[in-house]
Amino acid sequence: MSTDEQEEEIRQEIAAAEAVRPEQFEYAIRVRGLVNRFGDAVVHDGLDLDVRSGEILGVVGGSGTGKSVLMRSIVGLQIPTAGEIEVYGTSLDTIANEEESRDLRRRWGVMFQGGALFSTLSVAENIQVPLREYYPRIDQQLLDEIAAYKVAMVGLPPDAGPKYPAELSGGMVKRAGLARALALDPALLFLDEPTAGLDPIGAAKFDALIRELADTMGLTVFLITHDLDTLYATCDRVAVLAEKTVIAVGTIPELLATEHPWIQDYFNGPRGRAATESHERVPRDRKS
């Protein structure tokens, strides 16, 4: 049906796409002894963190505790001063060639705080960028259909596809950013403050969307947030960043049981208590 050359091309494409096999790993991300230093300012000092495959891990911490720096280190945008980071058994540090890092990069999606949509491309074209990059053989018709599907999946209105980022509201930019992060059906999703700047109703919808997508697609999610409601609504476990390291990781009840003053302040402050109460009243039923 197809020529040998095509056959070989397809074989190579599949081999590259599955060079990194997320399903074999118990831990999606392993961070050991991470040190990040900017001049005299030490942001991380011996930070350890494990993210289990299939879980939604919330990362919280005060401003300036290096949540975003941690994410940037994991995805390879920030070269750590010291320490080891492995994503699906691959360390970006030791990857010698560009091909191997591409193998890893296509298994994750990153949503930046401000959306980081390419401003000269429409929403649909933004979603198609990763697809075009990694699967150049997919024809335009299918690309358009996939883009339309992703637009629908993240809950954007039907006419959002041809719009440019400047024409979108803040909430829509976030959803479009999420759609682009999900373009390649990644196994691992990084979200930097997904609900920051959204109104409470929009934020609650976004929380539900993340939970639903993670369940449907079996995603592992690394979620940075300030939002207590997001933690309660979406996260399986929460990692607390303070004092230049991860001071505690666990479910919210486990964290509540710890003595650390920052954690107590965070969850038992006026906002924390309000969030806790509202979520205790409506117990979550979720299958693990």
Partner: peptide
Amino acid sequence: EEAQRLLKALADDKSEYRVHR
């Protein structure tokens, strides 16, 4: 079950999603 969940998400939405101007 996994496949059904994905397919259902698609089947539910009948609106016309546009991609190009």
